[in-house]
Amino acid sequence: MEVWIGRDGERHGPYTEADIRQWLASGEVSPADLGWYEGLADWQPLSVLFPQVQPETSDAPRVPPLPTTNASAPQDVASFWKRLGAWIIDYLILLLPTALIAVSMGAPAAFEHFMSQVENGIAPMVAMADYSRVVRPAAMWSLLVGFLYYAFFECSKWQATPGKLALGMRVTDMDGQRLGFARSALRNAVRLANAITALIPLVSYLTVAWTARHQGLHDMLAKTLVLNGRASDTGNPSSPPGSSNTFSA
């Protein structure tokens, strides 16, 4: 369970239940501080949410600065193979719009023309150059559709493409928060590199296998993570009662 803390008209977090119990016991947060978690109707004092936790001493001082990150709790990053599985699902989904674009923009006819050129003795390199020139617009449109698919889904309330959602993952910033569209677009701009070379996306994804937080090159550039757990299970997509910067006691 992840809990938000309200203090001085602002909300902080979310933090893990274990962190809050530790901070209550040490006096780092006050039992009078307000808390909220997904499914709770309204803010409640931490003393109500965690009645069994008592400060180590009755006069334990309240430390003014509330921890701003959840650094003490390791983030549950998704593995390379799980992310690969999600990529395959998304690839299969994108096959339909890609095929429709290709057909509507004459790719099948271009391929037939390519084969007839080869059969008639035209040099394969020349025939391939003609074919590539004809299908390039369809390829660019398909690439744009893929870019928008990833960029919009990963900054949506689900924080995940259908593939990631199916396998129980979400995309976040380094603090575990939902991405804005600009960061999501930056993260997925690497997909546009397919228009230049197939090597860059390959290297980008291979780094997921050996980096400490399973980050691809696109994750590192945009400062994002792919974490286990759907956004609907974490409390991130729906804000606590009150506005995004304040809470209502």
Results as ranks from 00 to 15, higher is better:
2 E>H: 13
3 V>R: 08
5 I>F: 03
6 G>L: 06
6 G>H: 09
8 D>H: 10
9 G>I: 14
11 R>W: 10
12 H>S: 04
13 G>C: 07
21 R>H: 00
23 W>A: 03
24 L>H: 01
24 L>V: 05
25 A>C: 08
25 A>Y: 14
26 S>Q: 12
28 E>Q: 15
29 V>S: 14
29 V>C: 14
30 S>Y: 11
31 P>S: 01
36 W>E: 02
37 Y>P: 00
39 G>L: 09
39 G>C: 02
40 L>M: 13
41 A>P: 09
43 W>I: 07
48 V>H: 09
48 V>N: 14
49 L>F: 04
50 F>M: 06
51 P>M: 09
51 P>Q: 11
55 P>F: 13
64 P>Y: 02
65 P>K: 07
68 T>P: 11
69 T>E: 13
73 A>I: 04
75 Q>V: 13
75 Q>H: 11
78 A>D: 06
79 S>Y: 08
80 F>G: 01
84 L>S: 14
88 I>V: 15
89 I>D: 00
91 Y>Q: 13
92 L>K: 11
94 L>A: 04
96 L>F: 06
96 L>H: 04
99 A>I: 15
100 L>Q: 00
104 S>M: 13
106 G>I: 10
108 P>N: 03
109 A>S: 15
109 A>I: 03
110 A>Y: 05
112 E>A: 15
112 E>W: 10
114 F>I: 04
120 N>P: 08
121 G>W: 01
124 P>S: 03
127 A>H: 04
128 M>H: 12
128 M>A: 15
130 D>M: 10
132 S>P: 05
134 V>E: 02
139 A>S: 13
139 A>P: 03
139 A>D: 13
143 L>V: 01
143 L>Q: 06
143 L>A: 06
144 L>R: 01
144 L>P: 04
144 L>G: 00
148 L>G: 12
149 Y>I: 10
151 A>F: 02
151 A>W: 02
153 F>E: 01
153 F>Y: 00
158 W>H: 08
160 A>N: 10
168 G>W: 07
169 M>P: 06
175 D>K: 13
180 G>R: 09
183 R>S: 08
184 S>H: 13
190 V>T: 01
194 N>E: 08
194 N>P: 00
196 I>C: 05
198 A>D: 10
202 L>K: 04
203 V>W: 05
204 S>H: 11
204 S>G: 14
206 L>W: 02
206 L>Q: 01
206 L>V: 04
211 T>E: 08
214 H>T: 05
217 L>V: 08
222 A>W: 03
223 K>F: 09
224 T>I: 09
226 V>Y: 03
227 L>I: 06
229 G>H: 01
233 D>N: 11
233 D>W: 05
234 T>D: 12
235 G>K: 02
236 N>I: 10
238 S>Y: 12
238 S>E: 12
242 G>S: 05
248 S>A: 08
